[in-house]
Amino acid sequence: MIAAPMIEIQAVSKRYGKGPAVLETIDLYVSKEEFVTLIGPSGCGKSTVLKLISGLTAPSTGTLRVDGMTAANAREIVSYIFQDATLLPWRTIRQNVGLGLELAGASKKRRSERTDALLELVGLRHVADAYPRELSGGMKMRASIARAMATNPRLLLMDEPFAALDEMSRDRLNEELLRLRAEQKWTGVFVTHSVAEAVFLSTRIIVLAPNPGRIHATFAVDLPFPRTAALRATPAFEQMVAHVSLRLRSALPQ
């Protein structure tokens, strides 16, 4: 049996107003439980792909379906993690994590059960009643991830979520993200500038080239799961990173 893809993007182009094309005839299929990373130089339209999948912006031409639905209708099964933690500063961490459920009208009891479980999962139970300003960048990002998980998404869109963090926190959060994925079986679309991060996380890497944004190369990452910190020191991992880096360089404008 062939599973219906989570995301089908067919011949999608995107331009804003009368400006130049940001994306030019993109075709992309993402199967359920895949983890696909988009990587490429600035201006290649990586973030625009995520905005299209989330329905925050509509394609200029072409068709796009998420789990067989229009992007806007599929929002219930989608969560978005932004580059900044985008926590509401006037809410405690617990209240922030419960935001999605609150907006969906979940009961108070269900909300507190779910948020407590998630805070435990991302290791923030001890700061549940703190305000975001009291937390480090890494902790804020953890809260942001917990908030995205709260609504039980089946598709997770992540727009450079760890770009602002130091390398140690970034590695730790990469490992945690994979652990969460193994438990919860969502499909992931991830955007990053870091090749190592892309290789560590993904089942497939898509290199985009700029002006206009288009698919330059695709790599299947065959490294076995579960992936742990030790993987980063293996020759197979380093080889893959070198391989992708080379192709990424060829995507840069001369």
Partner: peptide, 9 residues
């Protein structure tokens, strides 16, 4: 982004 977050929900 906060507006987008709310729209996504």
């Amino acid at each position: 982004n906060l507006v987008h977050l709310f729209l996504m929900h």
